Structure formats: structure tokens, C-alpha cells
Simulated scan of single mutants.
Amino acid sequence: MITHTFVVLAYKESQYLENCICSVLNQEFKSKVVIATSTPNSFIKNIADKYNLNIIVNPNPGKGIGYDFDFARTCVDSDLITIAHQDDVYERVYSKRMVENFNIFPDSTILFSDYFEIRNNEKVFENTNLKIKRFLLKPLNFKNVSNKKIIKRMSLAFGDPICCPAVTFCQKNLKVNTLFACDMKCSVDWNAWEIASNIKGRFLFVNEPLMGHRIHEESTTTEILEGNNRIKEDYEIYQRFWIKPVAKLLTKLYSNSEKSNQI
């Protein structure tokens, strides 16, 4: 039987952490749930104790968000692993759909769903940002060819359409310990997917909005979009797909499209 674990990545004291934990504990497919953190504190411990969850502390904190992601991705032994971001929530069938699809396509390196945004505690299924990302994912709607390198890279060549907390990883197929770890602050996820696109295996897109990504003033997404490194990092990744003049143009267009992530 396929095993699946939610690793809830907790940081400092998020008011939404308990909501996230409740959503992953309330899955139809009973996944294992643990908490990973680089900032152990009494707030996280109290919630872990309340739900009888183990806390796994990163022994090498402070290196950056990408290093925290890789720690969370590799800190448990499970066929499938989802890094649940502390501010987000998951629909009850999320892990069930991931396992069902992996059983059909066991060569998948990553599996991921569509998602909705949570703004002011309301679910948002349609906006400019979501429409663009769904358009970019169209090549991956054809599951039978989603193991082809050209198809995987086609979906990434114009921007990052994959929502990181919606992703489930198959460690056995990825065969790498370092996927996210880098000095980037904004394009960490996109960098990881670009690396994964070169690894033999399938990008499996489950075209259902199975998780909610919260957009608020204290979220990591909002914070990193306010930094000056964002355009530089996007340009660096675009150059892996395009010549420099095209990369510059796409960087400018993509920067404008991402403004809907801000409050």
C-alpha cells in the first residue's frame, strides 16, 4: 500500500497553523502527519501536543527557505510526501487523489493539484494570476505525455504555474536530496521544478482545486514579492529556457502578472 505523509512546515507563530493541521488530519485517506520546523517554540509545541504530533527540528536552521523545504521533504520515510505550508489548507480528498493518481502513474516525480486562493477568509477560484497559471499548465493536461521532458519544460518556460504547497513528491523517483536548496528567495519553487524537469519521470497534474493557498500580509509569498531580488531571480531562470532578449521581455511581463499575489 502506498504511504503518504504531510510534513507541516511551521515557522515562528502562525495564527493559521492549527487550521492547516486540522485540514491534513481530516483527510479521507489517512495520511501520516508530522511537523517540521527551524524555529521550535512553545506555540508550535502546544499545538503538536494537542493533536499528538511529532515535531522534527531542522538541525541546520537559518540557511534559507529552500533549505527548509528540502529538510521537510527528506525528513520522513514515505512513498509520497507533501510539504504543507502552515498558512494553507487542504480539501478532504487531496491525499486520496494524489495516491489514486500515483497508483495509475507510478513513474511520477511530482504530483500536484490546481488550487484556490484564500483572501480575507474567502475562497477565490478565479483571478488573473490563477487564470494565467492554469493556461501555462495546459501541456500537462495530457497525462500520457507528461513524462516527456519537452512537455514538462514547456509548462515552465513562461513562468511558474505550480503552487508549491499543492505538490506531492515521490522521493524514490526524484532520487535527489537537493532540490530547493539555493540562495534564491523568490524563485525557489520555480528553480526546483526546472531541476526536476530534467529528471526522468512524470509531472502529474490533477486538474482539481484541492488546496487553498492563503494570501495575506504576513505570508511568505507576499513578503518575497516585495523584495528587489525577484526580477533578478526570474531573469536567471528564464535564461535556462530562452535567449537573453526574450528572457528580459518575459521577466517584465511575468512581474506584472504576479502583482495579484500582493495585498
Rank of each mutant, 00 (worst) to 15 (best):
F158G: 06
I104G: 00
E117P: 01
K152F: 08
R119V: 02
E91I: 00
M154R: 06
I162L: 08
T178N: 12
K185A: 14
F112D: 07
N60R: 02
I199F: 08
N58Y: 02
M154E: 07
D68M: 10
G64N: 08
A72S: 15
I263L: 05
I47C: 10
D77M: 15
Y94M: 00
D160C: 15
V99P: 14
Y16G: 03
K175H: 12
T39A: 05
K248G: 09
S38L: 04
T3A: 01
I21G: 10
R119T: 01
R92E: 12
G159Q: 03
V246W: 05
S23M: 01
M184K: 08
V145F: 04
C75N: 09
N46S: 15
A192M: 10
S255Y: 07
F203N: 11
I132S: 10
N207L: 01
L225D: 09
F43K: 04
L137M: 14
S219D: 05
I237V: 14
N120E: 07
P161W: 10
V89Q: 11
E223P: 03
A48D: 03
I83G: 09
E236D: 15
R153G: 14
D87W: 00
V188N: 08
F71C: 06
I35Y: 09
L253E: 04
K96H: 07
S31A: 13
L140A: 06
D70I: 09
S42K: 13
N261T: 07
T109V: 15
C164Q: 14
T221A: 03
K133M: 12
K143N: 10
L140F: 07
F205A: 00
L249A: 11
I47T: 15
F71S: 11
F241N: 04
D107W: 04
R92L: 00
D234W: 08
L111P: 05
R134F: 09
G64V: 09
S14L: 04
Y238Q: 13
P165C: 00
P245K: 00
E100A: 03
Y238L: 13
D77E: 14
N19E: 09
P209L: 00
P61I: 02
T82P: 05
S14F: 01
I132P: 05
I110K: 03
K149I: 11
N58G: 02
C186E: 03
A166F: 03
T178V: 08
C163Y: 09
V176M: 14
K32L: 04
N177L: 05
V145Y: 12
K172Y: 08
G212V: 02
A84Q: 09
W190K: 07
I110A: 13
V8Q: 01
A247P: 08
N141S: 11
R202G: 08
K248C: 06
F203V: 12
S113V: 04
A247F: 06
N26S: 14
W193H: 13
R97Y: 06
S42G: 08
I55K: 00
